[in-house]
Design a protein around this nucleic acid. Structure first.
Lengths: 203, 203
DNA sequence: GCAATGTAGGACCGTACGGTCCAACGCGCA
DNA sequence: TGCGCGTTGGACCGTACGGTCCTACATTGC
C-alpha cells in the first residue's frame, strides 16, 4: 500500500535528481518504480506536480537527517559542528562523483521562475536550512564577534555552498568544491573573536 | 539577412532566460521573433540545439562587454575594479527585479547533467570568466598576501555570486544578493596585506 | 528577361507528454 | 457460489514538441 508510494517517490527522486523535474516523465517514473501502468501511478498521486512536491519534501527530510543533523549535536563545539557540516556537504557531493548537484539548487534553478508552487516550497526549504545554521550561530555567539549577523552569515554559507556545488557539477571536478569549502571555513573563522590569531588556524 | 538571425537570437535569449532552454519551444521563439513559420526558422538555424549554443555564446559576449569589461579598466586600482564588478553583478540582477538569474547558472543547473554539449560550453564560459578575475588578481598581487591562490579565489567569487543570484531568485528579494555581495567583498579584503587594518574598511 | 536568393505560409510526420477511462483480475467475506 | 472492492493492464485522448517538405512570392543582380 504505502510501500508502493515510497517506491514511486524513491524512483522519482532519483530521476529528478538526474535529469530535472520537467525532463522526467511520468512514464519514466512508472518504469523506474516498476509499475504496471499509468492508472497505477495516478492511483497514488493525483498529478505529476504533487509527486514533485512530495519528492522535494522527502529530499529535505533526508537532508535534514543526513546533513543537517550534525548541526544539532550537543556534545560538539558549535563552530566545530559547522565545519563538520561543510565537510558533510562535500562528502555528499562526492558520493555522486560530483555529478549530481544539490537537489534544491537544481529545482530552484529549473523552476523558480516558471512555477510559483515549487518556488515557495523551495524557498521554505532554504528558509529551514538557514534557520538551522542561524540557531547554531546564535548558540556560538559567545565565540563570535559582536557584530556578526547570524541570518546574513547563514545565507552567505548556503549561497556559497550551492554555488560551489553547481560549479563542481559543471566542471565535473570535486576539488573545486573542496577548495571553496575550505575557503568558506576561513571566512567563517574571520568572524570569531581575536580574528588575528584564529584567522589562519585550521580550526 | 543577418538581421533576422539577430532578431531570433534576441527573442530566444529572452525566452530561455525566462523559462529555461527545455521549456522554450521553437514555436515560442518563432512567435517571439515574429517569423512566418517553422521553415523560416530552420532556414537560419539547423536545430534548436544549435540555436541554444549561439544564444549562450551571445549571452557571454554581452556579459563580457557589460559586466566583465570593468575588470580590465586600466585607470582604476585592480581591487577597486573587482569591487565595482561585484556591484555590477548586483545591478544587473536588479534590472530584472531579482527574478531572472544568471543565464549561465540557469543553463548550468538545467543542462549540465543531461546534455554534454551544453555542459562543455558552459564550463568554457565559467573558465573564461574565472580567468578574467584571475588575471586581475595577478595584477593586484603586490597588494595581496603572498599565499593567495588566484585561481582558487576566482572560483570562490564566481561560485558565491552564482549561488547568491540563485538564492535571490528563489526568495525574490534583492537584499539577499546585496548582503552576500558585501560579505564577499569583506572576504576578498581578507586577502590583502595588513588585513588587520583593511579588513573592516569599506574599500 | 532570367535565375538566384531570401521571405513567407502552411501541411504534415512521428513521437512524447500528462492525464482519463474502462475492462479484467484477485481476494476476502457471506 | 456469488458479491464487493481494491488493484492491475493498457487502450486511448488531446496537445505539444522538434523537424521536414513543398509551394509561392518578392527582391536583387546579371
Amino acid at each position: 500500500m504505502q510501500e508502493r508510494r515510497v517506491q514511486i517517490l524513491d524512483a522519482a527522486a532519483a530521476l529528478i535528481a538526474e535529469r530535472g523535474f520537467t525532463s522526467t516523465s511520468v512514464d519514466d517514473v512508472i518504469r523506474g518504480a516498476k509499475l504496471s501502468g499509468k492508472s497505477h501511478f495516478y492511483h497514488y498521486f493525483k498529478s505529476k506536480e504533487e509527486l514533485g512536491y512530495e519528492v522535494l519534501n522527502r529530499q529535505f527530510e533526508r537532508f535534514a537527517e543526513r546533513g543537517l543533523a550534525i548541526l544539532r549535536e550537543p556534545m560538539i563545539d558549535p563552530l566545530e559542528r559547522l565545519s563538520l557540516f561543510i565537510d558533510g556537504v562535500v562528502a555528499l557531493q562526492a558520493e555522486s562523483g560530483g555529478r549530481r548537484g544539490s537537489p534544491f539548487g537544481n529545482l530552484a534553478a529549473e523552476l523558480a521562475d516558471a512555477h510559483e508552487g515549487f518556488r515557495v516550497r523551495i524557498e521554505a526549504v532554504f528558509e529551514r536550512w538557514a534557520s538551522q545554521i542561524g540557531s547554531l550561530l546564535w548558540e556560538a555567539r559567545p565565540m563570535l564577534q559582536d557584530d556578526v549577523d547570524a541570518v546574513r552569515l547563514s545565507r552567505f554559507i548556503i549561497a556559497t555552498l550551492e554555488g560551489a556545488v553547481l560549479m563542481t557539477r559543471v566542471k565535473r571536478d570535486l576539488t573545486v568544491l573542496e577548495g571553496i569549502a575550505a575557503d568558506l571555513k576561513r571566512f567563517i573563522a574571520m568572524h570569531v573573536r581575536d580574528a588575528e590569531q584564529t584567522e589562519r588556524r585550521p580550526w
